[in-house]
Design a binder for these strands. Structure first.
Lengths: 219, 219
DNA sequence: CGCGTGTTTGATAGCAATCAAGTTCTGTGG
DNA sequence: CCACAGAACTTGATTGCTATCAAACACGCG
């Protein structure tokens, strides 16, 4: 076991508070723990479990045959993942830090948690996933490198709930989420720092110094 | 009423056959007809209806303030749209041809169609939507212009079920779906024709002449 | 303190966007 | 039925953004 610093472990109460169905898996799900970098499920694996992050962080990734990689999304405490397919997973899921999830069989959830509650939970989670995917589509298809990075930082800061945020992922993960290279991400970050819009005390921590400018650049 | 040639009208039995829940809205939904280019729902409009295409074709689009446009997806007979949000629509939906849809209130569907059936219908549709969105993410984030266009043609041909397919959308819609410009799409099409991989008898009709090559180029 | 990984910076190349004409297609009206 | 007008599509020249190739730097960890 390696020495893992949980820079990226967020408490469940924060993000979870936004979801009306946050407690569904608490009783019906099985608690599972993963170390940093472990795989929660694999690309092309059969998809019969759904997961809710309790602590830590997860990314979903898709690999092309030549090594190009696309990150689908990042998942934090309260977020539900694994419902993205009717058959086999199109993306794999790996942890960004030591992570605890609740896992439940898709088909048995209604029996354990109650049908109406399970349905509401699934419907809410699916709608949220689609929302995020569509926002991501616009970002990938039509935004410039600068806009992509600005959008990313803005969302990260908003999720953290303040001007300061800590990122659980490195530059390569940011790049693969944004459809850019690691070098371009780095250059845009440097540029945003030069314009006094954000500051990076360390590579994984940043402070939004000019939110209005960041919003403007993200569109 | 203008003279509309339904180049783009597909019969419902074809695409609909793939869905186990195709008939749910047939009894519970309200039939609505739109002329080509009409709006089914608007960006930022409240989302309380779900739709299933009966005939024709629909695109979902998101507009940025400066006019850049991203198409979320194209919907054909049997496809369900409008479940992409928990609150207001992030994309608008417009018809590509004269189109008939079935529309149902999201909240009353379980009462009319039966709860279990409605749930299965919604869950299946949502999973399908997420699948397509994730495939689209990979395409936008990591594929080259040539790969994007090849993927697009391949999917269109597969949907048509043969080597020949008719496209309900023009070059601009293709470009906005693929995250490219209209000129680049046109150039890639010319290139694919030059390599004898596809042929375009007209701008809206094409024939796959070398499927293996198209598959290879789409990855 | 030194090594390795992760990040930043620099120089150059290349793909797709932009700007700008042509060309073809489609629908309309004579 | 043919001629015309406008839109859609294609082609060409050039620019510019982002990728690639390459190296330096910084930080975390043993």
């Amino acid at each position: 076991m390696t020495n893992v610093i949980n820079l990226a472990t967020y408490p469940i109460d924060r993000a979870g508070a936004a979801s009306p169905s946050v407690a569904v898996l608490a009783s019906a799900g099985v608690r599972m723990a993963y170390a940093r970098g472990e795989e929660v499920y694999a690309q092309d694996e059969e998809a019969d479990l759904i997961y809710q992050v309790v602590s830590g962080a997860v990314r979903t990734t898709r690999l092309m045959s030549d090594g190009r990689r696309q990150i689908g999304d990042f998942y934090y405490p309260g977020d539900v993942l694994g419902l993205e397919t009717s058959d086999t997973h199109r993306f794999s899921a790996e942890t960004l830090a030591d992570t605890v999830v609740l896992a439940a069989k898709r088909r048995t959830l209604p029996l354990v948690a109650g049908k109406a509650i399970a349905d509401a939970f699934m419907a809410h989670a699916a709608a949220r996933e689609l929302d995020r995917a569509q926002e991501h589509l616009l970002l990938l298809g039509r935004k410039t490198a600068c806009e992509k990075v600005a959008s990313f930082l803005l969302h990260a800061a908003d999720r953290a709930g303040g001007a300061r945020a800590t990122l659980p992922m490195g530059r390569q993960d940011m790049a693969d989420y944004l459809g850019l290279t690691i070098e371009t991400v780095s250059r845009m970050l440097t540029q945003l720092q030069g314009a006094d819009i954000v500051a990076f005390p360390t590579a994984r921590t940043f402070i939004v110094k000019n939110r209005a400018a960041l919003v403007r650049l993200s569109e």
